[in-house]
């Protein structure tokens, strides 16, 4: 047992609590009756996820997760919620339909599938395939702004420009949809 504990690294110690917190936050999004609480829960989820990203070596993406997701996008959501000013009457009662039930069951089933596939539930066919991928040693500065930016502007410039164009279109589209008569 002590050897097991000795084999644990800082990443282990941080990952599992953060994973649990993330899952809790995510459940909060889905279960909260009021979208406002859901949105707050989502922000916390994004923070925990950002920490996990950083644990996985994605420093730059983790920061972006906080700035863009938890910052910009979630603010957008909160603004929308504020504009809509939803009350209990507007939200209505929960309705359970057959499709919701079956779809929900299948969604939960996805976790089972993932478990079986990832070999945590050892069956006859348990394909422990991924574990055979040896971890590559991370180079110096992996996931840093410099490294990702270099790749982004050197090799993926076209995609970057396409996405920037998409954002522009989205801005115009959002204004058009929200303002114009449909």
């Amino acid at each position: 047992m002590s050897s097991f504990l000795a084999s644990l690294t800082l990443e282990h110690w941080l990952f599992y609590p953060l994973a649990l917190l993330t899952i809790a936050g995510a459940l909060g999004v889905v279960l909260a009756r009021n979208p406002l609480y859901g949105a707050l829960s989502l922000i916390s989820t994004f923070f925990f996820l950002a920490a996990i990203f950083i644990l996985a070596g994605a420093h730059f993406v983790g920061i972006l997760q906080i700035i863009v997701y938890a910052g910009a996008i979630m603010v957008l959501f909160l603004m929308a919620i504020m504009l809509l000013a939803l009350d209990a009457k507007a939200l209505g009662r929960r309705r359970v339909t057959l499709f919701k039930l079956v779809g929900g069951l299948f969604s939960v089933g996805l976790v089972g599938l993932a478990l079986s596939f990832l070999g945590l539930r050892q069956g006859a066919r348990g394909p422990i395939m991924w574990i055979r991928i040896p971890y590559q040693k991370l180079p110096e500065g992996f996931g840093s702004v410099a490294a990702v930016g270099d790749l982004l502007f050197r090799e993926h410039l076209l995609q970057l420009e396409a996405v920037s164009l998409l954002l522009l279109v989205a801005i115009v589209g959002a204004v058009a949809v929200a303002k114009g008569k449909i």
């Binding site: 339909t97 499709f99 079956v102 779809g103 299948f106 969604s107 089933g109 996805l110 599938l113």
Partner: peptide, 17 residues
Amino acid sequence: DLQRYAAVMAIGAVVTV
């Protein structure tokens, strides 16, 4: 019904996976 579509999609995705 949007959600019915979503449910069907989810079922389809899970079955495919």
